[in-house]
Amino acid sequence: MSLSSFVFPVLALFAALPALAQETGGMSLRGPAAMLERIEQLQPGCRLSQTSVTIGVNRASGAHSQARQDLLTMAPGGCRPLVSTQVVAGANLGLGPGSNAEQSIQAYGPRGLLATTAYTRGYNLAAGPRSTAQQRLLNQIGR
């Protein structure tokens, strides 16, 4: 067996793999008709994908200091994208002695026609002596 007869099939295999991965990746299409029906439900003018990321960092580092943070994220109503992703993350730090740190993050978003992902993560720390740290996170997907 010559070298070329071995190399060319291998190269052809490597060339074919990405195309195969594109066809098999993503969501499994067990019901293509139903899937297409859902895609057709996408209203004109609405986005295919909508991602909302709300991140807040609130820090009270001085002695007897106060830090307050309020974040609100709302997506426009009436439009449902195919894929909806909503991320809420907050870090609230009361570092100084006698400090007070308050953080509130709220996010409201639509549900996707095909897929919806809601991700929430919070970190709350009262490290200073007599410090206070209060954190409230709300991540809501429309029903």
Binding site: A118, G122, G128, R130, T132, A133, Q134, Q135, L137, Q140
Partner: peptide
Amino acid sequence: GSFSTAGQGTTTI
């Protein structure tokens, strides 16, 4: 910290 208070409420729907 000493005498410190930390309160956290997280709601995901």
